[in-house]
Nucleic acid binder design. Structure first.
Length: 482
DNA sequence: TGGGGTTAT
DNA sequence: ATAACCC
């Protein structure tokens, strides 16, 4: 899968390969992409080519795992490998492996339709996300080893800013190695590579790193995926999907217009969602070119200056948003959907289940949530996706009990949740819910406050109760609650 | 459409 | 608290 050796029309062939074969191809590729650059004279490295970071352009990689849930299931149970496999949540096949896709199964397909299309389809239940979530974080952690700036997008996608790493590698590069420099994977649009162009060079080095990332994912975690390398997140994401599965593509700047113009509708642009696409449609905007050429003033008036300016820049392939390190999660939530819940007792039982799982997760995380939220969805024929929520601070005495083994923290928290429930739902009237969700958020690190510091005396658990067992002075409640 | 996530207002 | 976006 060395640059330049793969004509686009051959890409389909790789879908027949298994992951191991494809990986072997990656390693076995022959150098091919050098147009025969002149050997730079300076023996020390390439710093002469890069005048003090004059190139402000970035190198971003988007890493996208192939049918992630299905891959995790096949690792859990290798007997599933080679069979058409779907992952089921309720009555939906939320994702499936490539065997199943070949037989006509699509993502988010109804189980009935899928079974009709593909009677041999093997289904596994994927409503419990625990193993997917754990594997997802292993991937992110692996990528963080390459460079700490990793942004998660869902469970199966990550952005990594490779700019600094590429700079370092270029400084290490001996000048005579430049003429032999080769990227890895496909070049979008089969574009000609100019090794005199520092931007090309940097992106090629980015593609080498991307290949190393995919290799590490396969060797260490057994996972395959795609990667896209480009100068910003939008383009990296768009280009990562060009050759699938288990392949990678680099976008050189001269082809960015070809890439974005290849989208058949503005809705395909990441950042333009369902609502915005509908509003654009009402303005007669459906293609990327429509959006590029639309009056900015009118667009600002219709969508607000923020959205208008952002999406119009996106339509030109411009995206200056940084890769924001995700770090640990901001919230933990568990939800369950169902046909009907119409009694308080029923709701309480479901809420207890959700909360019990959450408490395990939050306990493992180590940080403590300071806010709890209950979310419901009411039955209604039209507005299906609308949800309502109520949240409140978790009392500090409950926070302190979190993670302390046999202490019953369920009872006070269920009491809080049921108050939130009755605040949203008039239980004296008939009701019909189709979803319940509990979210623990506003996570704060454990007390690292040291004795003798201000923090120590302002930290209720340390300065009042835990030292002597009795309060040495009284804290104001307002300091102890959120 | 499921079972998650994020940020902006 | 909701609305938009992402998977």
């Amino acid at each position: 899968e060395q640059l330049g050796v793969e004509p686009a029309e051959e890409a389909g062939r790789y879908e027949e390969e298994d992951a191991a074969q494809a990986m072997e191809r990656v390693e076995a590729g022959e150098a091919d992409c050098s147009p025969g650059a002149p050997g730079p004279e300076e023996p020390g490295g390439l710093t002469w080519l890069v005048p003090e970071g004059s190139s402000s352009s970035r190198v971003i990689v988007h890493v996208d795992l192939d049918c992630f849930y299905a891959q995790v299931e096949m690792i859990s149970n290798p007997e599933l490998k080679g069979k058409p496999l779907g992952v089921q949540q309720k009555y939906l096949v939320v994702t499936c492996n490539y065997e199943a896709r070949k037989l006509g199964v699509k993502k988010l397909m109804n189980v009935r339709d899928a079974k009709e299309k593909c009677p041999q389809l093997v289904l596994v239940n994927g409503e419990d996300l625990t193993r997917y979530r754990e594997m997802s974080y292993k991937v992110t952690e692996l990528l963080e080893e390459f460079s700490p700036v990793v942004e998660r997008l869902g469970f199966d996608e990550n952005f990594v800013d490779l700019t600094e790493m590429v700079e370092k590698r270029l400084q290490q590069l001996q000048s005579d190695e430049l003429s032999a420099l080769t990227g890895s994977g496909h070049v979008y649009n089969n574009q000609y590579i100019n090794l005199h162009d520092i931007v090309h060079i940097r992106l090629l080095v980015g593609s080498q790193i991307a290949a190393e990332m995919r290799e590490a994912m396969y060797n260490q975690l057994g996972l395959t995926g795609c990667a896209g390398v480009a100068s910003n997140k939008l383009l990296a994401k768009l280009v990562s999907g060009i050759f699938k599965p288990n392949q990678q593509t680099v976008l050189l700047p001269e082809s960015s217009q070809v890439l974005i113009q290849s989208l058949s509708h503005v809705k395909e642009m990441p950042g333009i969602g369902y609502k915005t696409a509908k509003r654009l449609e009402a303005l007669g905007i459906s293609s990327v070119l429509d959006l590029q050429t639309f009056s900015p003033k009118i667009l600002e008036k219709e969508l607000g200056i923020s959205v208008a300016q952002r999406i119009q820049k996106l339509s030109f392939g411009e995206d200056n948003s940084p890769v924001t390190p995700s770090g640990p999660p901001q919230s933990f939530s568990e939800e369950d959907s169902f046909k009907k819940c119409s009694s308080e007792v029923e709701a309480k039982n479901k809420i207890e289940e959700l909360l019990a799982s959450l408490l395990n997760r939050v306990c493992q995380d180590g940080r403590k949530p300071h806010t709890i939220r209950l979310i419901i969805r009411r039955y209604s024929s039209e507005n299906h996706c609308s949800r309502e929520s109520r949240q409140c601070p978790i009392p500090s005495h409950v926070i302190q009990k979190l993670g302390t083994g046999n202490c019953d923290v369920m009872t006070p928290m269920v009491d809080i949740l049921m108050k939130l429930f009755r605040n949203m739902v008039n239980v004296k009237m008939p009701f019909h819910l189709t979803l319940l969700s509990v979210c623990l958020c506003n996570l704060k690190a454990l007390n690292t406050a040291k004795k003798g510091t201000i923090d120590y005396y302002l930290t209720p658990s340390l300065s009042t109760t835990s030292r002597s067992g009795k309060r040495s002075f009284k804290m104001k409640d307002s300091h102890m609650e959120d």
